[in-house]
Amino acid sequence: KTFHFGSCRVSMSLAEIRAGFTAIKANIQSRDPVRTLSILSHPHSLHKVKSSDRCCMTHQLFTFYVDKVFKHCRTEDSFVNRKISSIANSFLSARRKLGQCREQNNCVCGEESTEKFKQILANYEGLNVTSAAMKSLGELDILLDWMEKSR
């Protein structure tokens, strides 16, 4: 499927990522006891990101997941670990495509999305690394739901 992030067009299979996440969602979310804090959706909702900022925000979020989330999400369950690494590989390839857009200057970071991403990092740093990574992974459907609106 082709997604339009601002002026950037990227084809990727969200269905594969979505299927992988659905298979481990209950397991991952049950490891996150903190109901009162969200990494991605509060206080700023992704759904309020302007369409012109979508490319930059998506690229930043993919980088966030590759650099700060997947590597800290090892579990004792090999099935879950396999699904996590398959999702991580899909993110790596998608980020590469988004990176090409950035090089062609189609991926401008507006002030608003920069602020929102700072808040996401602040939410992440408010927890210890493992809890923050596991919570972020458990919120993958929030990211996917938002991205699917960019079809």
């Binding site: 269905a15 979505r18 459907d141 996917l144 739901d145 699917e148």
Partner: peptide
Amino acid sequence: SAQIHVTTPV
């Protein structure tokens, strides 16, 4: 007869 199919989320 007809069915609805949403691709993502499935």
